[in-house]
Amino acid sequence: MRNKVSKKKRLVLTEEEVFRRLIKGDEVGLARALSMIYREEASSSLLSRIYAYNAEKKEKAKIIGITGAGGVGKSTLISVLAETLLKEDKRVGVIAVDPSSPKTGGALLGDRIRLQHLFPNSNLFFRSFSSRGMVGGINPFIFDAVSVLEAASFDYIIVETLGIGQDEIDIVHMCDLTALVIAPGLGDDVQFLKSGVIELVDLIVMNKADLPTASKTVGILNSYTRMVENHPDIVKVSASKKQGIRELIAYIDNKWCELKNTGQLVERRTTRWKFQVGNWMRYIVGKKIHGFVERGEVKPKTSPYEIAISTLREWGCEV
């Protein structure tokens, strides 16, 4: 079986080529830009060019976050949203993040499979990422990936993330609009509601409305939202039965236009930008700290606080 094949040379693109191709919406360039960012191979000047390019652009993409517990139907929902939008000649870009194994670093990136049937299609782009290399759930790559898709002129950019806690809160900062998806009969829901995400998201999508237990879940949900001031609306859909999808898109479109017209969109995007600055700082410093802790000498007689302060001062931090 060990028949020698000559090794192939993997396609190499310069940053200039990547940039030129991606703003034309070329998939090879776009895909490669995302790989470079994810592998931390992109220089800051490429990223700056992308941000500058987006800032100049008149037509903004609608950046929609979809979050929720495992198995509530996020991917299925995204697939029917995309299907509907494609029929209306919209360009749709999707980013999905799946957890990677902490032990091997490997990952099964399974979200894509739910909309695989929509391919081949030149108006649909999907990219799967693993959560590998994220320090403390903070992930600057995904933020930048969204900006890359924006530069490639998609009408809608949809981001799917999973998990409870930090990640969901991040996604709110990453997107113009965020939907929390819930489904009947999943234990995690209540935890979601308690985690405070409900106060941050723009709407709650009650998926799997086709299931007999759906009305009970809506009941529970209502009793929670009642206690929350300015609580988000609840939109009922069934992703697998393709019910309520057009209504959901209309809701999202309206909400987005409202944000735009009231100046909140600009505000949110400013917050987003600032958040991303913080993200990168936390990521870079976090990695430095991680490395220090791993390598650091053990001096059980010194207080950990003292080591922390003195080291940070050594690094030039005014603490």
Binding site: E27, V28, L30, A31, R32, L34, S35, L109, R112, Q116, F119, P120, N121, F125, F126, R127, S128
Partner: peptide, 8 residues
């Protein structure tokens, strides 16, 4: 093929 390209 399109999947392979997009996922690089």
């Amino acid at each position: 093929a399109q999947t392979a390209v997009q996922e690089d």
